Amino acid sequence: MARPRISSALLDVLGLLLQAWDQQTEVHGWQIMRSVRRSGPTVYAVLDQLEDAGWITGTWQQHPAGAPARPRRRYYRLTATGAEAARREVLAPARVPPPRPRPAPGFGRHGHPRPAG
């Protein structure tokens, strides 16, 4: 079980799955795509990572006998380990990149001192 690579898409999907966990419900792929406003390939790549890590489980929808034929949906739910990890990642302090160094006052684009006026 490899730890998934943390990305903004993964955090969006984890946030939604964590809400579903708290409401004791499951969500299917299309619901996730619509809610987090991410493309299908992005969402399903994240779901694959989370499933490989053991953070979620997926179950196929069961059609009752005599129901109209339509594609089955796959529903996703956090595991207990996944819920713990989701809380840790989603609620972590903001991931702010370190500030870029600024040139010292008086230095131009190429690092040479500007002539005094």
Rank of each mutant, 00 (worst) to 15 (best):
D12V: 06
D12E: 10
D12N: 13
V13W: 03
V13I: 12
V13T: 07
V13A: 07
V13L: 09
L14C: 08
L14D: 02
L14T: 03
L14K: 02
L14Q: 02
G15C: 05
G15T: 03
L16D: 06
L16E: 10
L16R: 09
L16K: 08
L16M: 11
L17E: 02
L17W: 03
L17G: 03
L17Y: 02
L17K: 03
L18S: 05
L18N: 04
L18A: 06
L18V: 04
L18M: 09
L18I: 05
Q19V: 10
Q19N: 10
A20F: 00
A20M: 03
W21T: 01
W21S: 01
W21R: 01
W21D: 02
W21G: 01
W21M: 00
D22I: 00
D22T: 03
Q23N: 11
Q23W: 02
Q23L: 08
Q23K: 10
Q24T: 00
Q24F: 00
Q24W: 00
T25L: 08
T25A: 09
E26Y: 01
E26V: 07
E26F: 03
E26L: 07
V27G: 00
V27K: 01
H28R: 09
H28P: 05
H28E: 13
H28N: 15
G29W: 05
G29H: 10
G29V: 12
G29D: 08
G29A: 14
W30F: 12
W30Q: 14
Q31T: 14
Q31C: 08
I32A: 04
I32Y: 03
I32E: 00
I32D: 00
I32F: 04
M33C: 13
M33E: 15
M33K: 11
M33R: 14
M33S: 08
R34I: 11
R34C: 09
R34F: 10
R34A: 15
R34D: 15
S35G: 12
S35T: 15
V36T: 14
V36D: 06
V36N: 06
V36S: 06
R37P: 04
R37V: 09
R37K: 14
R37G: 10
R38K: 13
R38H: 07
R38E: 04
R38Q: 08
R38F: 05
R38C: 05
S39T: 12
S39L: 09
S39P: 02
G40Y: 11
G40V: 09
G40C: 09
G40Q: 14
G40R: 15
G40E: 12
P41A: 10
P41F: 11
P41G: 09
P41E: 09
T42P: 05
T42K: 07
T42G: 08
T42V: 15
T42N: 09
T42S: 14
V43P: 02
V43C: 06
V43G: 04
Y44D: 09
Y44P: 02
Y44R: 13
Y44E: 10
Y44V: 08
A45L: 11
A45D: 12
V46W: 00
V46G: 01
V46D: 02
V46I: 12
V46Y: 02
L47H: 06
L47E: 05
L47P: 05
L47G: 05
D48N: 10
D48Y: 13
Q49N: 11
Q49E: 15
L50S: 06
L50P: 02
L50R: 04
E51A: 13
E51W: 07
E51H: 12
E51Q: 15
E51R: 14
